[in-house]
Design a protein around this nucleic acid. Structure first.
Length: 877
DNA sequence: AGCACGCCGACT
DNA sequence: GTCGGCGTGCTC
């Protein structure tokens, strides 16, 4: 409870302002009519603008050295009493561990727009005239910018755009930023444009056009003076019978009419068409068609343990692909909901798992909400508000949903826990949802369930300490159990598929010998036979290609020139949705794109050779050799549009195609029972990434794709083609079939002993500093400076020790005995991306070394250089 | 982030 | 001597 007396006498509030560069607390006056509490999200005027802020604490006396008359009053309270103690502690912990300012963490946790800020906008006045500009004695460039500015503003219905938008538009038309500023100043002096600060618009629910009857429902009085056709009367009557209010789109369908007809009636005054708040429809409430399914013995055993979990505890549900993990989740959640508590289900990517969402929906109905970054601001806000209400619900969401503000959390489930999309590596905090979920479960005192067929090394080591390298091997199949040393960690194993369906055998094909024996196609003879057989028997198959392969660049046959990105040190990738579509070249790193040129920019030869994107090429080759096979491409080109994911899968399910040819996306949560054949075209792209996790990732990915085969009644078959069959990940893969879970354990055991020897995670901790800037020299200098600072700080925080030499990439200095070592700065593997030069510094910490504080580095970095601190990086490039 | 203030170079 | 560029620092 809040101390009432404090509440009454506190006249001052210290707040954390959402403004970069405004670190520290600012004091505001308590408004007379509002009782602001610590943890409230408020709006304050800061400098010239209005920004969001969080109230941190109340003060009875104004701080010393601050003139009370200069203190502004808190503008408004956006959200009251939102942060619970546990949630607050969670955010603090995230900020500390991931070396990020607290306000940045709050910003990632809240839906965008909640910490609102005022926006500078500009508006055209009547006197605006391009002709007049031309006569002015000003710089030609500025005059041009001014003309563009007027043209741009004229395009808006209100002659009104935000400053940011105009700036962006004019830049794309070739103006420099200072020219725009100057042009604006000129135009304002001439009175052609006015500039103003728009107050922050509060976030609202989604708006939709609605048709609303203006007359009373019961007796729509028809004005005899006005002509109203029979048809129009009919429409009004139907509308009245529907409650007098419909969404425009529904009205058009239901009343069999058009927008125009409604407009005509509206003009006569009988109805209005206007935007109305669209409350999140509970209309997609499919009937509760899905009932709990009978469980296998393994599932039942796992569920029994899950049901007994009380308070904070963690369980790893290690189930082979197709072992029915989802059913276990569903039945684990049911009693939580029944006890009026909520459950949080985290998945790698919502779009890729429509089947999982559907299943939850049909089991739990309206209690299921989806929360992820692809939702519109309004939808996100709605869902967020909905969560705060405290009614028991199931939230299915991606990484950021780990911060979902559920007040009464009963369980957290993290499905496919090995998936790298749970790690954020772009804006700080570079958090891992698994780590945050673990803290959250601890703080909220609820169970956390991690599920995967291929748990990541970190998780494995935590749950299976007995199977670490030096330990003697455990005989037999692993059993579900709790490791003795951690009574709160439970290892649950589903070693068999449901209905005892066998895991498909995996054949590894050595593509080198295929070549020696004269097969120059991309399909080995085994795969060819299997494909032919597939078509004959009328079954379905999947062909998997590793996307970042070598096969999608475009080069000139005559001079060898490779089309490269002008902003990055990478080659452009070839993209084409279908054979007739325009060919595009796109950069996978910065998004730059252009049409495929007709001739080589270097030597003007018309013979530009493209290999097509991986999938495109496979589809083309397949069409030549097996023309009767019907293929569907499933990659970023064909699934770009919203919903096309689902559409493609539905087509495939309805047997409108025999083969699904695709990339990584195929590995995730797709359950297609008719698939009997899985082919991995070239495993090699995966195996030799310059990264210590390459093997682990390759093995996980291949196990996941292989798991797509044989889920139905027909047995499956997997063919993996490679040029390096002796690779550990490939060798381990072939042991998959007889003792699947052991194969994974064996593979990890070998992998872990390598990691232990080098002090890599999970036997050490990494922190990656990414430094980037637009000016090559300045970026390098900044990187050097940061490295120097870093050494000083680390020495201060830990034992003084001898300097490690600034060694080059690939091999880290040996950490034996030392609490830490620093490598770099070194140029990043891809030195230039999106016109920025990039440098890396890698810190390796011994396991027992506490996490250093690196936040000071941030402050000492020049503003035009960006420094991001990635704790426990997954991606070292 | 935005905006004011202030220093420095090009111009009447 | 002034105008107007952009660099530096502050915002309760």
């Amino acid at each position: 409870m809040v101390d009432i007396e404090t509440n009454l006498t506190a006249l001052w509030v210290e707040v954390l302002v959402d403004c970069p560069g405004a670190t520290g607390l600012y004091t505001y006056r308590m408004p007379k009519d509002l009782a602001v509490q610590p943890g409230d999200i408020v709006n304050v005027s800061f400098g010239a603008q209005q920004v969001g802020a969080i109230a941190i604490r109340l003060l009875i006396n104004p701080p010393e050295g601050l003139d009370p008359s200069s203190i502004k009053t808190i503008e408004s309270v956006i959200n009251s009493a939102f942060f619970s103690q546990a949630y607050w502690t969670l955010l603090k912990r995230v900020a500390r561990y991931y070396q990020t300012s607290f306000i940045k963490v709050i910003r990632t946790a809240l839906p965008p727009g909640l910490l609102s800020r005022s926006q500078r906008r500009m508006q055209l006045t009547e006197v605006a005239s391009i002709e007049k500009i031309k006569t002015l004695p000003i710089n030609l460039k500025v005059a041009q910018a001014a003309a563009h500015l007027i043209e741009t503003l004229a395009k808006s219905p209100q002659g009104d755009y935000s400053w940011q938008y105009v700036q962006r538009q004019l830049k794309s038309l070739g103006s420099q930023s200072f020219e725009v500023t100057q042009a604006l100043r000129q135009l304002m002096a001439l009175g052609m444009v006015t500039s103003y600060l728009a107050p922050p618009r509060s976030l609202r629910a989604q708006q939709r056009q609605a048709v609303i009857l203006t007359q009373p429902l019961t007796a729509p009085a028809i004005d005899p003076d006005r002509q109203l056709s029979k048809r129009h009367q009919e429409i009004l009557a139907t509308l009245a019978s529907k409650g007098g209010e419909l969404w425009l789109s529904e009205a058009i369908q239901l009343l069999h009419t058009t927008r125009k007809t409604l407009k005509t009636i509206a003009d006569q005054g009988y109805l209005v068409v206007e935007p109305r708040e669209f409350l999140r429809a509970s209309s997609h409430s499919t009937a509760l068609s899905d009932q709990p399914k009978p469980l296998s013995a393994d599932q039942a055993k796992a569920l029994e343990i899950l049901h007994q979990l009380r308070g904070y505890s963690e369980a790893l549900l290690h189930g082979v692909t197709g072992s029915g993990k989802t059913e276990v989740y569903l039945q684990a959640i049911a009693p939580i909901l029944a006890a009026q508590k909520s459950a949080l289900v985290l998945v790698p990517e919502i779009g890729l798992t429509p089947q999982l969402t559907d299943r939850f929906r049909s089991r739990f109905g309206e209690k299921v909400c989806v929360y992820h970054s692809a939702l519109s601001e309004g939808e996100r806000y709605d869902t967020w508000r909905q969560m705060l209400t405290g009614t028991a619900q199931v939230i299915i969401g991606t990484r950021s949903a780990v911060f979902a503000p559920l007040p009464n959390l009963g369980m957290i489930i993290l499905d496919e826990e090995h998936d790298s999309s749970f790690k954020q590596d772009q804006p700080m905090p570079c958090y891992h949802a698994r780590q945050v979920a673990q803290w959250r479960a601890e703080l909220e005192n609820c169970p956390l369930i991690l599920g995967s067929a291929t748990p990541c090394t970190e998780t494995w080591v935590r749950f299976r300490p007995l199977e670490q390298p030096e330990q003697p091997e455990q005989p037999g199949l692993p059993q579900s159990s709790a490791p003795a040393k951690h009574p709160k960690l439970y290892y649950l194993c589903l070693p068999q598929r449901i209905h005892a369906r066998p895991l498909p055998p995996i054949e590894v094909i050595d593509m080198r010998s295929e070549l020696h024996e004269g097969n120059r196609t991309i399909f080995s003879r085994s795969l060819q036979k299997a494909l032919e057989n597939l078509i004959e028997t009328g079954n379905q198959g999947i062909l998997f290609i590793h996307r970042r392969g070598h096969s999608s660049f475009v080069s000139c046959r005559s001079c060898g020139h490779v089309m490269g990105c002008p902003h990055c040190d990478v080659s452009l990738s070839f993209h084409q949705t279908h054979a007739e579509a325009t060919a595009y070249l796109r950069c996978h790193y910065c998004g730059y794109g252009k049409r495929q040129p007709k001739e080589c920019p270097q030597c003007c030869s018309p013979y530009l050779k493209n290999f097509g994107s991986g999938t495109q090429r496979v589809v083309n080759d397949l069409a030549k050799y097996l023309p009767q096979a019907r293929c569907l491409r499933f990659d970023s080109d064909t699934t770009r549009n919203k919903g096309s994911h689902r559409a493609l899968l539905t087509q495939f399910e309805q047997r409108k195609a025999d083969l699904l040819v695709g990339t990584q996306m195929l590995t995730k949560g797709i359950d297609l029972p008719q698939v009997t054949l899985v082919g991995v075209i070239a495993a090699d792209g995966l195996l030799f990434m310059p990264d210590y996790r390459a093997s682990e990732r390759a093995f996980q990915l291949m196990t996941q794709v292989a798991g797509r085969a044989g889920r139905g009644e027909q047995p499956g078959r997997v063919i993996v083609q490679t040029y390096s069959p002796e690779h550990v990940a490939i060798k381990a893969l072939t042991q998959h079939a007889p003792r699947p879970q052991m194969a994974y354990g064996d593979f990890l055991k070998a992998e872990l002993s390598d990691r232990a020897a080098l002090g890599y995670p999970p036997y050490g901790r990494l922190i990656l500093l990414r430094i980037s800037g637009l000016v090559e020299k300045a970026t390098e200098q900044a990187a050097q400076h940061i490295a120097t600072q870093l050494h000083q700080q680390l020495e201060l925080q830990f034992q003084p020790q001898s300097h490690q030499p600034l060694s080059s990439a690939l091999h880290l200095p040996d950490t034996a005995g030392a609490p830490y070592s620093v490598m770099g700065p070194v140029p990043a593997p891809i030195f230039r991306v999106a016109r920025r030069y990039r440098w890396h510094i890698l810190i390796k910490l011994a396991l027992e070394t506490p996490l250093p504080k690196l936040s000071d580095l941030q402050r000492q970095t020049p503003t035009d250089i960006s420094l991001s601190i990635d704790v426990d990086p997954l991606n070292l490039s």
